[in-house]
Design a protein around this nucleic acid. Structure first.
Lengths: 273, 273
DNA sequence: CTGAAAGCGCTTACAG
DNA sequence: CTGAAAGCGCTTACAG
């Protein structure tokens, strides 16, 4: 096929069929293995269904998202998967209004009936983390946000705050904390690096918790306490839902919430003092 | 633009213009941060030039590469960037024969005048590694290959073998080695994990060297001796070359070799005995 | 059942 | 300078 002979022109077919058999994906940061795995599985699943994937790496920068959205609309993608987006972005609604099915994966709460969502149960995860840390004797707990200004980026923080409040605790500054909950594993791993370069030991001086359970979290030298999240299965389901909706020319209108379990490893230990 | 109003149909325009303003990228493993950064910059640079990127994650499996190639040809991409491919693949030639400019990035040696290549100088890097290890007193050195059966996948091994031979050494089995050179950082980091879980210490019992200098290699807990390679600049240049060739309707026909320097960190130490 | 024609939505070359 | 027509390469509905 590739080597020789006739290859039908998919562009002409798309024009006639009014379907590009292409999907768009908006991903905040491919450098984060969690998003890399998510897009890997989106791509793999889509290919299996005869779709091609247009990847846009947005870093949650509104102008980049806007341009990416414009490109996806111009190229008439049959559906869009969003793995993260800036706060208050008008993009999802704009896409939906044009009849393009939109699937949010690994976040949610955008409040449009027409969306598809596969979200994490962050509240529950934060409750499990608070319980774990409280049991270890931690009373000064801090939250380390991510760099990206992402929708739902505050949700883990808020979830942790509530869980602490239920135990009569209020959050403290990073510097005063005996335990730090990071927005995700990449952030947690970066914190370990920062602390250890200053001579602050993890977990002897400070406990650290991540979120995602990226492969590196299980490494002997990191061995991070974290929340397991199954990027592969979320990605597969997300693609199946968008493709089904695209083929039936409708919106997705569904909401899933994944419960993620806490994986206790060695970056959390009993509070020092 | 996205929110409302007319958006020209890029499919119709492509059909008329006989140009899709789309590029394809074949990447072996997005899970490897080196390839993730490479494709991130390919995508970013391409977007800046008005191109969209179709990503195919191949794992160097011939059947997957074949399908991906077919999809890219059907969709009439204006150029293809290959970041890794299986041994003896017929794909590059097939694409070139169809008039599609092809750029190999981070490997090379495919011997077709029409190709563009930005390759690593692996020989030189392996010489620097051999020198470093020899100076530290290592006489039993092993090579740890990658999992992927990739073209040029043997080149680092062969480069190391020659460099060892120049010092009167021949390679040893992994088990007998006092120093191990891994095909890349991911492999090196995986080795550290394996060894340490068996109680073998790095670098006290065995020294380990990587290749790529992914961000994790600079982490305090990994601190890997490795070879620095600039994925971002290679990716940018690769896209510029394919796009220029595509616009002028010609092949790329150029060869670049990057010299990468050895970064000495703490996974290499004096040989034990 | 086979084959010619119309049309997808653009762009571009040409006629008025 | 403006506007109608042709054509990119398919698919599909229709005429023969």
């Amino acid at each position: 096929m590739v080597e020789t002979g006739y290859q039908p022109n998919a562009i002409a077919r798309s024009l006639k069929a009014r379907s590009s058999t292409a999907l768009g994906i908006l991903v905040p940061d491919l450098t984060n293995p969690y998003f890399a795995e998510l897009s890997l599985w989106v791509e793999r699943t889509a290919n299996g269904l005869g779709y091609v994937v247009l990847t846009a790496h947005t870093e949650c920068v509104p102008s980049v998202e806007y341009e990416a959205g414009r490109a996806l609309v111009e190229r008439r993608v049959d559906g869009v998967i969003i793995a993260g987006i800036s706060l208050h972005s008008a993009l999802p609604k704009a896409l939906l209004d044009r009849g393009i099915p939109v699937m949010l994966v690994s976040f949610g709460g955008l409040d449009d009936e027409r969306l598809g969502e596969i979200d994490h149960d962050d509240e529950r995860a934060m409750e499990a983390i608070a319980d774990h840390l409280y049991t270890l004797g931690h009373r000064r707990v801090a939250f380390a946000p991510q760099q990206l200004r992402e929708h739902s980026g505050e949700r883990r923080r808020l979830g942790l705050m509530s869980a602490l409040a239920r135990r009569g605790l209020s959050p403290v500054e990073l510097e005063r904390a005996t335990a730090i909950v990071a927005h995700n594993d990449m952030q947690a791993i970066a914190l370990i690096n920062q602390f250890e370069r200053q001579g602050i030991r993890v977990p002897q001086d400070v406990s650290i918790v991540g979120y995602d359970d990226i492969p590196m979290a299980a490494h002997s030298r990191i061995d991070l306490t974290t929340v397991r999240s199954n990027a592969a299965s979320m990605a597969r389901r997300a693609v199946e839902l968008v493709v089904a909706a695209a083929r039936e020319d409708r919106h997705i209108c569904s909401r899933d919430v994944e419960s993620n379990s806490l994986i206790i490893r060695s970056t959390t230990a009993r509070a020092a003092q």
